[in-house]
Amino acid sequence: MIIVGAGVAGLSASLASIERILERGTDDARIAVLERASRADRGGNTRYQHRHLPDEGRPHDQR
């Protein structure tokens, strides 16, 4: 299986595939995650998610 993109969706798909392979008891499957972005730019839109998370553990509305 080839998964394109190393953001949350791509990595979740790869993990789900690995779990399914293990459940079936097969060991002949291969999974490749391909990412075009540079190491600094990896993560797709997930890279921007930190902007929507609380700072220093404080809820968003208390900043």
Rank of each mutant, 00 (worst) to 15 (best):
N45S: 12
V33T: 04
A13Y: 03
P59Q: 08
R63F: 12
D28T: 10
R39C: 02
G5A: 07
L11T: 05
G5K: 03
G5S: 08
A9R: 00
A16T: 09
G25W: 08
D61H: 15
E19M: 09
A29H: 12
T46K: 03
L22M: 09
H50P: 06
R51V: 01
G57P: 03
I3G: 03
D27Y: 04
R51Q: 14
G44M: 00
G5N: 02
R63I: 13
Y48A: 02
E23W: 06
R47L: 11
V4D: 03
R42P: 04
R20F: 02
R30S: 15
H52M: 11
R42H: 08
L53G: 03
R36H: 08
R51L: 15
L11C: 14
E56G: 05
M1A: 13
G57R: 02
D28M: 02
A13W: 01
S14N: 02
E23Q: 15
D55W: 12
H60S: 09
E19K: 13
R36I: 06
N45D: 02
R63M: 12
S38P: 06
A32L: 14
I2V: 15
A37C: 09
E35Q: 07
R58D: 07
D27M: 04
V33F: 05
H60Q: 09
S14H: 00
V8S: 08
E56L: 11
I18L: 15
N45H: 14
A9I: 04
Q49V: 12
R24N: 12
S12N: 10
L22W: 05
P54Y: 06
A29W: 08
S38Y: 07
A9K: 01
S38A: 14
D28F: 07
A40F: 11
I21R: 10
R30P: 00
A9V: 08
A6Q: 06
E56T: 05
A16Q: 13
Q62H: 13
D27P: 01
S14Y: 01
G10E: 03
E19G: 00
T46V: 06
H60R: 13
E19Q: 12
R30A: 15
G44H: 02
R42Q: 13
R47D: 01
S17A: 15
G44W: 01
R63G: 15
V8A: 10
R47S: 08
R47W: 06
L11E: 00
A32D: 09
H52P: 00
L34A: 11
